[in-house]
Design a binder for these strands. Structure first.
Length: 415
RNA sequence: GGGAGUGUAGCGAAGUCUGGCUAAACGCGACGGACUGUAACUCCGUUCCUUCGGGUUCGUAGGUUCGAAUCCUACCGCUCCCA
């Protein structure tokens, strides 16, 4: 199976500009492909992982992976279909660039990968050079027709964001020139920006210049919701923002209807392996074999093998439910990945305890959950609103382990 | 600058003409529970705060009234049309 066939089988292909041409270019030469990310946040989240997975597959298919950290484009802002973005401060941008660069480096290693920051060339471009060298090559008429711009004409779009597509076009051309990058990969919303780049390359280098674009379909789950949120929160790749345990659990909890789709999309398992897992999953869905494998593979890719083992150890401890007999050391060891909060040594009423530990948002809510039997302290269900929590009662007086609902854990640490 | 709209709980959206029955319909989301396979579906409950007596809300500030999300005035924000 070639690169494109593999993507099709995985359901990871939305549009390609010239499928045959791309395959030919790949077989004739070691070409590069790139994915760009603007540093809009200090960490990547699962949505970002999607194009990176495809880039990695491209690399595995013998290509060279190039990643742009968009210091320059991030300073401008890729227009959203609805509203204008707020500009990020230079300090924020710098911090975000640093965080994201570190993550990408971890994902791709240092092998056949190039990580560049487009601020290196965009930052040096003077206004007059920009207008003379690039502005002349872009037709306002074409730019206005791009989907994002068209949708913004109603509500308004600043000149700054309007210009974004030119900047991304310049990026593609720069990489084409410097690193033999002939393919740009992105989400389906990037089609317009990608074709801007291809057009620019053709305008500067001539129509015979090889440049291709490939987009990936928007990922949704079986109920049609946008993928990648857990309880309304984004799943981050940064272990500080989303613990490896939570990350692992996110994948482990995927529904049967979605799991095969995600195996195809988010793992490098072979066709045979995935087909086998699909079969196993259908025959015995309750064993959650496919989900387990999915969780292992993706957690390994993002956080490493040690994190997988840690997450599985923690999961085993939590879901056995038998936590009261663990030692303080075991608690510290196993529950390190669970959200924690600081507590005082003195005994405290259950409701106050939950609110002070920010496990509950208000006393009202805390009472409701306690009354419903949703709260367990050190493994023991507490339904009495007057109950007093004494940190000294378990784990050498060091910890109080709180469980809310069926599977949310919090660790109180005595100061 | 002129004209027309609009601003309600996390979001969407009723209620405004015909003031009290409105802490404010309904939907989504979120949270909890039952079921289960740490799934999906379904079902049930909760969703401003509370010392459970009550308190504070419907863009903001005033006013009318026994009583205002609902009427009046000013201001602020947003959208559209004309210039």
């Amino acid at each position: 199976m070639n690169f494109i066939e593999d993507l099709k089988w995985r359901g990871a292909l939305n549009q390609v500009t010239d499928e045959a041409g791309l395959l030919e270019a790949m077989s004739n030469d070691k070409i590069g492909a790139y994915v760009g990310t603007d540093p809009t946040a200090p960490s990547l989240h699962l949505g970002h992982l999607i194009p990176f997975m495809v880039l990695k597959r491209f690399q595995n298919a013998g290509g060279k992976a190039v990643i742009i950290i968009g210091g320059g484009t991030g300073a401008i802002g890729d227009p959203r279909p609805t509203t204008e973005r707020k500009l990020l401060s230079p300090e924020q941008l710098a911090a975000n660039e640093q965080g994201i660069t570190a993550q990408v480096t971890k994902l791709f290693g240092t092998g056949d990968t190039q990580i560049v920051n487009n601020n290196d060339w965009l930052g040096k471009l003077t206004l007059t050079d920009f207008l003379r060298d690039y502005g002349k090559l872009f037709s306002i008429n074409v730019m206005l027709k791009k989907d994002v711009v068209a949708s913004r004409l109603e509500t308004g779009i600043s000149f700054t964001e309007f210009t974004y597509q030119i900047l991304q076009g310049i990026d593609f051309h720069e990489l084409w020139r410097r690193h033999n990058v002939q393919l740009q990969i992105g989400g389906s919303d990037q089609w317009g920006n990608i074709t801007s780049g291809i057009d620019l390359i053709h305008a500067i280098e001539g129509n015979e210049a090889k440049a291709f674009g490939l987009t990936i379909p928007l990922m949704t789950d079986a109920t049609g919701k946008k993928f990648g949120k857990s309880e309304g929160n984004a799943i981050w790749l940064d272990a500080e923002k989303t613990s490896p345990y939570t990350f692992y659990q996110f994948w482990y909890n995927q529904s049967d209807a979605d799991v095969v789709k995600y195996l195809k999309y988010f793992t490098f398992l072979s066709v045979d392996e995935i087909n086998e897992l699909e079969k196993v999953s259908q025959e015995n869905p309750g064993a959650r074999e496919a989900q387990r494998r999915l969780a292992q593979e993706v957690t390994k890719f993002v956080h490493g093998q040690a994190a997988v083992e840690e997450a599985e150890r923690l999961s085993a401890a939590l879901f056995s439910g038998d936590v009261a007999d663990l030692s303080a050391d075991e608690i510290a060891d196993a529950f390190g990945g669970v959200p924690s909060f600081e507590i005082e040594q003195a005994p405290k009423n259950i409701v106050d305890f939950l609110v002070d530990g920010q496990i509950e948002s208000s006393k009202r809510q805390a009472r409701e959950d306690v009354t419903n039997g949703a709260i367990r302290i050190n493994g023991e269900q507490i339904k009495d609103l007057e109950a007093v929590i004494d940190p000294a009662s378990h784990y050498d007086g060091q910890f109080v382990l709180v469980r809310r609902g069926k599977k949310k854990y919090f660790l109180g640490k005595v100061q």
